[in-house]
């Protein structure tokens, strides 16, 4: 039996086509997904003549935004009325700045080994996204001065292609170090942190976060840069 259009669009989200940059198509109804694909193909056609893919990129981003828009009246899974507030007590030029991302980076030789499995590949992580969503997250400690060659990334919830090419797209260590060298910030924490953000929210909040907060405070970090993916 021929594949239906609905099956086709859904296949990009952990299905047979499994391209996580386009998993948003599953969140669109068939009519809207058809419009998205039509517009994207139109932009590809136009790029042959303009030589620019900027319009194509902006279009994909716009459809990602539209697909995830919860719409008016939607009830958020997690909502809070007020923001906690702890501004730094000194100028940034005197602050120690840290970095924590949900990009799934870790140092070579320090694989967090999800579910006890050594050397899990990216496709294996994608295939086990359901297991990740039920488990406690593991926070990887990454030396600030780690070489690019010793930095690894694995995450079952997003397209890591760009992060593999250049960790800075999700783990901006280089900009952080440069800010310290220029005097914009006082210093960089010795250790940076990352975890795969696709995880159990209950286990994250109750089991992991108390220890993570202690770790951040013990490192005398004044400002923490957070990057979700």
């Amino acid at each position: 039996m021929a594949e239906s259009f609905e099956e086709f669009k859904n296949s990009f989200s952990y299905g047979s086509r499994g391209d996580l940059s386009f998993k948003f198509l599953k969140k669109l109804d068939p009519e809207m997904a058809g419009e998205a694909i039509s517009q994207i193909l139109g932009a590809i056609g136009a790029s042959f003549d303009t030589g620019s893919v900027a319009e194509l990129h902006e279009l994909v981003i716009a459809w990602q935004v539209r697909a995830y828009d919860p719409g008016e009246g939607a009830v958020p899974a997690y909502a809070y009325d007020t923001a906690p507030w702890a501004p730094p007590a000194k100028p940034l030029s005197e602050c120690r700045v840290g970095l924590l991302t949900s990009s799934g980076h870790f140092a070579a030789g320090d694989d967090p080994m999800p579910f006890g499995e050594p050397d899990m590949t990216q496709p294996e992580a994608v295939a086990r996204i359901g297991d990740f969503m039920r488990e406690s997250p593991v926070l990887s400690a990454i030396p600030r001065d780690i070489s690019r060659d010793d930095l690894r990334v694995r995450h079952g919830g997003y397209d890591i292609r760009s992060a593999v090419v250049d960790h800075n797209v999700v783990f901006p260590r280089d900009a952080l170090v440069a800010a310290a060298k220029s005097g914009r910030i006082g210093s960089v924490a010795d250790t940076l942190y990352s975890f795969p953000g696709a995880t159990s929210q209950g286990r994250l909040r109750r089991r992991a976060l108390p220890d993570w907060v202690d770790t951040i405070r013990a490192a005398d970090i004044d400002v923490l840069i957070l990057v979700p993916v």
Binding site: L100, A198, Q201
Partner: peptide, 18 residues
Amino acid sequence: MCHVSVGHVARAVEEAGV
């Protein structure tokens, strides 16, 4: 869900004074 996870990290760390 990554963004929700980091949202919870942000709230917990800021509540701890950072």
